Amino acid sequence: MVVTILRKSYDEAIKAVGGVKIYEGKVPTEEINRIKEQATYFGEDGSIDYWNNIVKVYVIRRANGDDVYIQLAGNTAGGNIQILQKEAFKQTITMLKADQIQKDLSDKGKAVLHINFDTDKATLKGDGKEAIAEIAKVLNADKNLKIAIHGYTDNTGDEKHNLQLSKQRAATVKDELIKSGIEVSRLTTEGFGQNSPIADNNSEEGKFQNRRVELIKDK
């Protein structure tokens, strides 16, 4: 009875702050074995192990990505609660400056840029416009340089939609360069959607790397 009341109290408290229950039941044996291969500590005498217990898992989703996961487990002899806060992905890739773009185009024939657009849109964020200004510097420094602008996305969402989005983002880069005075005859665009990823789409960092614009030196 006490355990039931305690579980009900936690359930109501978690839901009151926006929590949603995402799992309830016994943890599968294969999952427990997987965890035990990696874990180094399960509490004093296994006190935080949840073998054969009913487990409830909740998530409190936060706008900044710092989601909070809460796990409750127990029986008539006792119980435990575990709380995990997910850290939001922090961008570590810096914007390429004009000299590096020029060097990459010269040495490799292409430069890979991570230009920030609004989520699922082809509209530029503030630092996205700054990135395009760096491209314009390169083109202004070499009036004979022509480039192809290739857009790519990660694999989130519909493949057909991603293909169209990548084309629109490449076109946005082109339009901004034209506004800055670059002749349209020096620019071409293409979009490839989620094809040809350069990183693992199973992580946020990998997805960020795949959302890119490549500048290809037009020979």
Results as ranks from 00 to 15, higher is better:
Val2Gly: 13
Lys179Gly: 00
Lys8Ala: 14
Thr156His: 02
Asp127His: 09
Ala133Pro: 02
His161Leu: 10
Arg7Asp: 09
Lys108Tyr: 09
Asn116Cys: 04
Asn195Phe: 03
Phe42Ser: 09
Val2Ala: 13
Gly74Arg: 10
Gly25Arg: 13
Lys217Arg: 15
Ile81Glu: 09
Asp127Ala: 08
Ala63Arg: 09
Gly78Leu: 10
Met95Pro: 01
Glu24Asp: 12
Arg34Met: 09
Asp99Ala: 09
Val20Gln: 11
Asn80Tyr: 09
Lys207Glu: 05
Ile216Ala: 09
Ala141Val: 03
Ala199Gly: 02
Phe117Asn: 00
Ser166Pro: 13
Asp218Gln: 15
Ile101Tyr: 09
Gly25Val: 10
Gly19Pro: 11
Glu12Lys: 12
Ser196Asp: 12
Arg169Phe: 12
Thr172Trp: 01
Ile14Ser: 04
Ser203Glu: 07
Asp158Met: 10
Val17Met: 10
Ala39Pro: 00
Arg62Cys: 01
Glu44Gly: 02
Val184Ala: 14
Lys15Met: 11
Arg212Gln: 10
Gly206Asn: 02
Gln85Leu: 02
Ser166Gln: 12
Ala199Met: 03
Lys217Ile: 02
Thr189Gly: 04
Leu84Trp: 05
Thr76Trp: 06
Glu31Thr: 08
Lys167Glu: 14
Leu187Ala: 01
Val17Lys: 11
Asp200His: 11
Thr189Ser: 05
Ala133Asn: 11
Ala199Ser: 10
Pro197Glu: 07
Thr153Ser: 12
His114Asn: 13
Arg212Thr: 07
Ile48Asp: 08
Lys137Ser: 02
Glu24His: 13
Glu183Ala: 15
Lys167Ile: 03
Arg61Lys: 15
Glu205Ile: 03
Phe89Asn: 05
Glu31Phe: 06
Asn195Cys: 00
Ser166Asn: 13
Asn53Trp: 15
Asp99Val: 06
Glu183Arg: 11
Asp104Lys: 05
Gly65Val: 05
Gly206Ile: 01
